[in-house]
Design a protein around this nucleic acid. Structure first.
Lengths: 112, 112
DNA sequence: TTGATCTACATCCTAAATCTATGTATAATC
DNA sequence: GATTATACATAGATTTAGGATGTAGATCAA
């Protein structure tokens, strides 16, 4: 269980999670795993660099949340630019998925 | 036009093309572009290393075709192992595409 | 006959993005 | 007090695709 992510799709997934509500890194990873039924798994080594890049690009903003129990959390919020980028990336994904499906054809479990 | 390929999907695309008929490298690239309506574009720097890797793994076999007009062609044929690998990769793709779609949700052109 | 274009294969280098491994630290559970 | 879950972070290795470049035959136009 748990397929590696093909490169390039991770930012879109993070933005999509943040589009529902602000969240901190660890929660983002858990949400992606849950929503994908465990198919998509996301390591810290991928997650935090990706979040930093998104922030540098102005697609998310962050704020430390020191109150509450447990270690401090850095909570990320989608910016307007991030929202726009998400729509673009989602459409791009659709086009890509359709293209791959067109090349692969209908070879599935019952191939013969 | 022409999106870069997320890493990992290229072998599956090549195997799928060869599943219909043996073909040489250049023709494989053209077929992928045509079937995907130009969305997927494949450069020599990606194509030939990928073909060599597939051959080393025993998923395709190759033979030089010297007859005919133009430069010599190396014609690739899917092996039985390649056929099995293709089915596996196609199913894997399905699972991955479904997982990404689940995380992305229904954010598309008419986002709001 | 020169040049441009398409076909066709090939390699080297670079870049990007992800994973592995490791480290720090708090809190709850056993 | 040991383990587990939470939570952030970085360095290094790996994978894999693209860019640039090179060779070479065939075709066609100027």
């Amino acid at each position: 269980m748990g397929r590696e992510l093909p490169r390039g799709d991770l930012p879109a997934l993070i933005l999509a999670v943040l589009d529902d509500a602000p969240a901190h890194g660890y929660a983002i990873a858990r949400t992606i795993e849950r929503r994908s039924d465990g198919v998509l798994q996301l390591r810290e080594g991928s997650l935090y660099p990706a979040l930093r890049a998104l922030e540098q690009q102005g697609l998310v903003s962050s704020a430390w949340e020191t109150a509450g129990a447990g270690p401090a959390r850095k909570v990320y919020t989608l910016t307007d630019a991030g929202r726009g980028s998400l729509v673009e990336r989602a459409n791009d994904w659709d086009a890509y998925a359709a293209a791959v499906a067109a090349v692969l054809g209908k070879r599935r479990v019952s191939y013969g």
